[in-house]
Design a binder for these strands. Structure first.
Lengths: 153, 153
DNA sequence: GTATAATACTACTAAACCAATAGGAATAGT
DNA sequence: ACTATTCCTATTGGTTTAGTAGTATTATAC
């Protein structure tokens, strides 16, 4: 069984940064806002670029920001109600909502192809829309434990 | 449930053309080779661009070509042994096999993210690698019948 | 109430990638 | 030989992406 899709689930670097920022915010939430610097350092992302990304996430309603001296970013909702799919959808599809099926030009294979893309989108969406950041944190912990369990004991 | 991925399963236009060309070749196979012109016309693809694509498909061993006056293209194997995933893998990943995980830089979330991409790639690959062009032809026929059944009778 | 440390906004740039084009060389049938 | 076709290599133009830069705005601390 060979690998078909390019890795990272066909998600742009920017979008992956957004996911990691959300992950970090989930991981280190605790009343106090988290500074862009800190997130950037922890995740090794360019500070400037991360500013842009977090600003978009704020406009999307996923995070809240506090300005001024002791400002930073916070999750806008609880981590178990924010799903990976929402972030990907928002960051990836900002602006150019690809005009789906304008091409009603009916060539042989249209039906079969449409069916194929539909099936693929279904399974992918199913994963993305059912993985919350709370889930990711849990998985991270579990996988790390697993690793230690297998290799260190 | 909102839609996450961009439509067409994140497959490039060129790659989609390749799939349609294969579909057409499957549909109209019958001893005689099929000309690029004919495929291009039937699928409304630029002839020149389709030449490039078919040439690549030949190098990939998916089609055979006959040159000269009554030349054209033929499937290299039977349609039920050529899978969508093979085409996508070959056309999409020509040359720049994205240096997967060079970035062993261990930031928080690495494990969880890797797991996420793995799950996504698994389900997608599963679909692509189990859909042959024979399947597509069958599906096309079935879906068309269904359409007629619902709307015309 | 002023200095300061942070986010917010807008625009820009460089590079990568993609779709498509161009021109001609090789080949096989008639 | 002629001609219709595939074959090969290179190049273009456009779009997207990743990242940068400069400045404005805001809230806090003192």
């Amino acid at each position: 069984m060979q690998e078909v899709t390019t890795h990272f689930g066909n998600v742009s670097r920017k979008c992956r940064y957004a996911l990691r920022a959300m992950f970090e915010l989930t991981l280190r939430q605790g009343g106090k806002p988290l500074k862009v610097n800190e997130i950037a350092a922890s995740q090794s992302i360019s500070v400037r670029f991360l500013e842009v990304i977090l600003s978009e996430l704020r406009q999307g309603g996923f995070v809240e920001s506090r300005r001024g001296k002791s400002g930073g970013y916070l999750l806008a909702r609880k981590a178990d109600s924010i799903f990976v799919g929402q972030i990907i959808n928002f960051v990836q599809g900002n602006g150019h909502r690809d005009c789906l099926d304008t091409s009603k030009q009916t060539v042989p294979g249209d039906w079969a192809m449409a069916g194929l893309w539909r099936r693929v989108n279904e399974v992918v969406d199913n994963i993305y829309n059912n993985t919350s950041f709370a889930d990711l944190i849990a998985q991270e912990a579990a996988m790390k434990d697993d690793y230690i369990g297998n290799y260190v004991i």
